[in-house]
Each structure stands twice: as structure tokens, then as C-alpha cells.
Amino acid sequence: MEHIIETWFGKIKVNFNEEDLNKIERYVRGKYREYAKDYGYDNNSYLIELKKRCIALAKDKIQEEAAEKDRSIIRAYTILKDLRDNSNTLYEKLLDWYKEHFPELKIERDRMLDIIYRYGGRENILNSNENIFISDKIKKSAENSNGIDLSGEEEVILKELSKTIKHILNLEDILNRYIDEKIGELTPNLSSVFNSRLVSQLIYQANGLKRLAFAPSSKIQVLGAENALFSHLSYGTPPPKHGIIFQHPYIKNAKPKDRGRRSRFLASKIAILARIDYFTGLVKDDLIEKIKKEINE
């Protein structure tokens, strides 16, 4: 019987009294180099040519993967995540220190950073003439404060720290804007129903829009709840009802008994929209309106 077997150097015809194709292929695979001689490859050039092919193939595939648009979104998102964690803990530590010196100062974060960066210690606040930054109330509490004194060295540290935190917050803003813009381009449908923070998190967890589009809605539902899911699969603990999608107010604000049902619904909608985004990229206005209406009801 004649068989045709595909190899990297071409299709070869072989004659065997054997039915099982796997066995024949295995036999031929043991003698690739002998067959390749007919195609003009000796022992040396066999490897050289094969390597050339394989490297070209791999380079093509790498290009494809690295060029996917969602890579940059995932990168930006991971940086943003780290920055957020760091800016929060750093700000807490800054406050912890500064409150020893001026416990009465209670204002929101951005203004707090501004004031520490600009003035440092209490005395400078008292001596300032800039009424825009320092209200009379703050001045009064600075006068009567019962905090400990700050040495010059410590003042420099706190000033520099607040400056650093301000820089980090600024970078967060830039990244947020970048992600918003890119997510809007990449997933026009998904991001018009859900906010970009949720969408970027989904893409990050699924490791790319392609994988999100190919994922079943049951997977999307528990994306981000991997620990709970695997402990369910291995030890039979209760299964997770929702992962990242819990952030959405539709689930977050629901009664506990409705949450499972709602997260199933939401996950199925995300699956539909992600597939439209991945395969067509066209905006489906009527579908978006319909889903928005269903969610708001």
C-alpha cells in the first residue's frame, strides 16, 4: 500500500504492508535523514536547513504574539496595579509619621500631600500668607496643636516622600488615561457597557482578549477567583459565585441570594461582547443598548 507522509522537507511516498499510519510515520521518522538525501540534504545541510526553517517559523510566531494590541494594555495594567498598592501604603506611612507632628490636620489626600510638600512643619504653615492653600481653621489648629516637634532632617524626609507619592499618583493618572484610550479602541463594545477598569482587569486575568473571547462564560464568571475555584475542585468547598465581575454594581448591590444568578447573567453578556470585539471589532449599538437596559432593570 502506498502512503504519503508529510515532512518538513517535502511529501514523501512510501510503500508498506501496514494499515496503521502511526506505525509507518514512526518508522519513517527514524529515517528522516535517509529520505532527505533524495531531496539533496546530507547530514550537515539537513540540520542547517532545518534550523533555518524552525527559526523563521518561531520568529514569525513571536512577532504575531508580541504585536498583539492587548499586550501593552496588560503591561500598563500590571504597572498600575503595583503603583496603586505602593502609593496607598506609602501614603499611610507618611500620614503615620506626620500625624505625630500635627495630629489635628484632617483633610483629603491630595491637599494633604500638597501641604506637606509645600510647607513641611507646623511653623511654616503658621507663617504662610497664601490663603488659597491654608485656611484660617488650619492655622488655628496649627497654633494650638499638641503634636511633637519635627527635626529638620525629618522634615526633609517627609517633604521628599510626599513629593514621591505625588509623582506616583501622577503616573497613575497617565496610565489610567492610556488604558482608557486603548481599551476603547480594542474593545469598543465591551467598554461601552462596562467601565475600562473592569475590562482591563478581565483582559489581564484572561491573559489577552483572544483568550477572553475564547473562554466560556462560566470561566469568565469566576475569573479572578482561582483560589476558591481550585479549592472547590480539589476539596469540594463551596464553588465561587463570582470573580472580578463582583465589582460591577449590578452584582455588588444585589442581595446575596441574587448574586449567583446575576453573575451568571453578566458573565454571559461579557462573553458575547468579548467575542464580537475580538472577531469583528464593529460597534453593535442595538445590542449594547439592549444589554444596558437589561442590566439596569
Binding site: 540540520l47 532545518l50 534550523k51 524552525c54 527559526i55 517559523l57 518561531a58 510566531k61
Partner: peptide, 12 residues
């Protein structure tokens, strides 16, 4: 690496 060492065939 495989460009430097002759006997490595990379398969992606």
C-alpha cells in the same frame, strides 16, 4: 542561543 550553537533546533 541556537544561532550560536550548531546542534540546537528551536521549536516554538
Amino acid at each position: 542561543l541556537s544561532e550560536d550553537l550548531d546542534n540546537i533546533i528551536p521549536l516554538f
